[in-house]
């Protein structure tokens, strides 16, 4: 199946001279949840803004559903819903009016039943007649999501969807995203909350300084780049690490009761066998051991640091 979004050699240099994107290539498959991870200023919002038509690209091309975003902008944009990062709303409008407005703006026939369903799905129905300025921040975020969904898009962009959002709304939002995916909607979210990507995404792209550093299935990314940690619970506490074990760069924790060894899970040799032999030779004995995988956050920090 051809990708629903295809980005090729996309670059953006702002008039200030700042190069926000450097020849980005990226394909998004239909129906997947794709998380774009990156630190602030990495180019996440610029990338989304170009695909949505808010910012002009300096060079390169984008197609959405096979439609070029410039030549065939109507067909491309009809497919897209965007939830922006900032809480930008028409303060004096009612919730119902602003969501209905969005539907019309995207060329959809008036459909009160659909708007009603959208508002109910987002727990906004009770607030339908309230002016937006009277709503809390979380409610405003819901309004923005309702506006983005009002024209039944096939692709939904969520730019930092859970920044400053309480736990309940975050949970609701994740549930909503999963529900949308089940109906075939492709979801692209940017975030710097790693747990969000870890929890939600099928695939993860990491962007830093305008370049996509890596794009992988979440599981593959974790196994490929994940470092593992071996923790040994010692029989007798150690006051210091014996010199003979220095090459392993062990850490002594829990008041000398635990030895921690970090290794590359994908490496040809993990060094575990040798470590255990050397431990025995040094007279260090242990009663238990466990290994754990590093989190996406650690992977991410490692990647971005390498780039610098």
């Amino acid at each position: 199946m051809p990708p629903i979004i295809s980005i090729s050699q996309l670059s953006k240099t702002y008039s200030s001279g700042f190069q926000a994107l450097k020849s980005v290539d990226l394909d998004i498959s239909q129906g997947e949840i794709f998380a774009l991870l990156g630190p602030n200023g990495a180019g996440k919002t610029t990338l989304i803004s170009i695909v949505c038509g808010i910012v002009n690209a300096t060079s390169g091309g984008v197609t959405v559903g096979g439609h070029d975003i410039r030549r065939d902008f109507r067909a491309a944009r009809e497919m897209i819903g965007l939830v922006p990062q900032e809480l930008t709303t028409d303060s004096f409008e009612s919730v119902w009016a602003t969501v209905s407005f969005s539907r019309g703006l995207f060329g959809r026939r008036r459909d009160d039943a659909f708007v009603e369903k959208t508002l109910k799905d987002l727990s906004l129905w009770d607030k339908r007649d309230a002016r937006i300025l009277t709503l809390s921040g979380g409610m405003k975020r819901r309004v923005l999501i309702a506006k983005a969904l009002a024209h039944e898009p096939r692709v939904l962009f969520l730019d930092e969807p859970t920044a400053g959002v309480d736990v309940e709304l975050r949970r609701d939002m994740w549930q909503l995203v999963r529900g949308l995916r089940e109906t075939g909607v492709t979801i692209i979210l940017t975030t710097h909350y790693i747990e969000e990507a870890e929890e939600m995404a099928d695939r993860i792209g990491v962007i830093s300084k305008g370049e996509i550093i890596v794009v992988e299935q979440k599981a593959e990314l974790m196994s490929k780049l994940g470092r593992k940690r071996l923790t040994l619970n010692l029989q007798e506490p150690l006051s210091e690490i014996p010199d003979s074990l220095e090459p392993y760069r062990l850490e002594l924790k829990s008041g000398g009761c635990e030895l921690v060894y970090t290794y590359d899970a994908q490496g040809q040799r993990t060094g575990i066998t040798r470590l255990l032999t050397d431990l025995s030779a040094a007279g260090v004995t242990f009663r238990d051991l466990q290994t754990e995988q590093s989190s996406l956050e650690e992977i991410f920090v490692g990647l971005v640091k390498d780039k610098r």
């Binding site: 949505c52 038509g53 808010i54 944009r77 009809e78 965007l82 930008t88 028409d90 703006l105 060329g107």
Partner: peptide
């Protein structure tokens, strides 16, 4: 000023 222009710019309108 309010930032809501994003919607206009991203809509399928000429």
């Amino acid at each position: 000023f309010a930032g809501t222009i994003y919607e206009l710019l991203s809509a399928p309108v000429s």
